[in-house]
C-alpha cells in the first residue's frame, strides 16, 4: 500500500508583481508504507515546500497529493490527526521544560505521555535526565531528540522530518539515523529531507531534488547504478594544480574534488588510465595515484545536475 503519493505537484510563491518563484515544478513520487524515504537536495531545492503541502500547511498550485489515502486539500482535518511533523527549525517552546513541551504536544494530539511511552522510550530516555531543563538550554542534538519525541507522541502513521540533522554534529546525526531505523520496525512511514548526500545511503529509497525538479527517484544503489561511465580517483601532492591540469584536457567530462582524491569522468571510456598518467607525467606531479572508484550519491547528484542543466 502506498502511504504517500505526490503527482505533478506544482508550488509557486509570489515574488513581486506578476512574477512567481517556482519552488516545486511538476514533482511526482510515491512512498510505500513502512519505508524510509529521503528527499535529498540543497537549500532552496523545494524540500520544505513539498513537506508543507503534504502536511496540509500549504495549498499547491497544481497536482494531487495523498497521505494515508487521504487528499491533502479535502481531508486536511483527518490528515492532521494522523501525521507527525518536525519542521526545519525544531519547533519547541524554549521557555518550557523538556517535560512540559512533551506534555503539551501529547495533550493537543489528544493523548498522554504514558499511553505511547513505549514508542518514544528509546529516544526520550536519553533526555529524560534533563526533563526539568528548559528546551532553550539544550544542545542541538538533544533538541532534535525532544522534537522527535514530540512529533511521535501521538503514534502517527506517517512521520515528516524536515532537515532533522541540519546543524547537528556528526555523532548526533549518526545516533539520529539509528533511531529512525528502529522506528521503521514499528511500521511508521518516514519521509525525511536532508541536504547531506552522505545520508542518502541510510534511506530505503531517495528522491534527488534540485531547483524544484526531481533528478531521480530510486534506491540509493539503483541511483549509483544509473551512473554508466567509469569513474577514476586521482591524487598527487598538489591537488589544486592537478585539478586544473585535468580540466584542461578536452577528453575530460568532469573533475570534482572528493576528500583526498579528484573524481574524474571522461567523455569516452577508452585509455583513461593512460590519459591520466600522461597528465601526471607532463605536469610533473609527485606521488601520483590513479585508481578506479565506484560513484557515490554525490557523484550522481552532480552528474544529474549537469545533465539536466539545473546548476547556476
Amino acid at each position: 500500500m502506498q502511504s504517500v503519493t505526490v503527482s505533478h505537484l506544482i508550488k509557486n510563491y509570489p515574488a513581486g508583481k506578476k512574477s512567481v518563484v517556482e519552488a516545486v515544478r511538476d514533482v511526482s513520487f510515491s512512498v510505500d508504507k513502512g519505508e524510509i524515504f529521503g528527499i535529498i537536495g540543497p537549500d532552496g531545492a523545494g524540500k520544505t515546500s513539498i513537506f508543507r503541502v503534504l502536511t496540509t500547511l500549504l495549498l499547491a498550485e497544481g497536482g494531487k497529493c495523498t497521505v494515508d489515502g487521504l487528499d491533502v486539500v479535502k481531508d486536511y482535518k483527518e490528515i492532521r490527526k494522523r501525521i507527525g511533523y518536525m519542521p526545519g527549525k525544531f519547533s519547541l517552546y524554549q521557555d518550557l521544560s523538556v517535560q512540559e513541551n512533551l506534555e503539551f504536544f501529547a495533550t493537543i494530539f489528544n493523548t498522554t505521555i504514558e499511553k505511547n511511552y513505549d514508542l518514544i522510550k528509546d529516544i526520550y530516555a536519553q533526555i529524560e535526565p534533563f526533563k526539568e531543563r528548559k528546551a532553550g538550554q539544550l544542545s542541538g542534538g538533544m533538541k532534535q531528540k525532544l522534537a522527535l519525541s514530540c512529533a511521535l507522541i501521538h503514534k502517527p502513521t506517517v512521520l515528516f522530518l524536515d532537515e532533522p540533522t541540519t546543524g547537528v554534529d556528526a555523532v548526533s546525526r549518526k545516533e539520529f539515523w539509528e533511531m529512525l531505523h528502529r522506528l521503521k520496525t514499528q511500521g511508521i512511514t518516514i519521509l525525511v529531507s536532508t541536504p547531506y548526500m552522505d545520508e542518502a545511503g541510510l534511506c530505503d529509497r531517495i528522491a534527488l531534488i534540485q531547483k524544484g525538479k526531481i533528478l531521480s527517484v530510486n534506491t540509493p544503489k539503483g541511483i549509483t547504478k544509473e551512473f554508466k561511465k567509469p569513474m577514476w580517483a586521482v591524487r598527487s601532492a598538489e591537488m589544486f594544480r592537478l585539478m586544473n591540469s585535468i580540466l584542461a584536457d578536452p577528453a575530460v567530462e568532469s573533475c570534482y574534488p572528493f576528500g583526498q582524491y579528484h573524481h574524474v569522468v571522461f567523455h569516452n571510456a577508452e585509455n583513461e588510465i593512460q590519459k591520466l598518467e600522461q597528465i601526471i607525467r607532463e605536469g610533473n606531479f609527485q606521488n601520483g595515484e590513479i585508481k578506479p572508484v565506484e560513484p557515490g550519491i554525490e557523484d550522481c547528484f552532480m552528474a544529474l545536475m549537469k545533465e539536466q542543466g539545473t546548476h547556476g
Binding site: 502536511t55 492532521r80 512529533a151
Partner: peptide, 8 residues
C-alpha cells in the same frame, strides 16, 4: 505554529 496547525 506549524506543528500546532498540523495537530487536531
Amino acid at each position: 505554529m506549524e506543528v500546532i496547525l498540523v495537530s487536531p
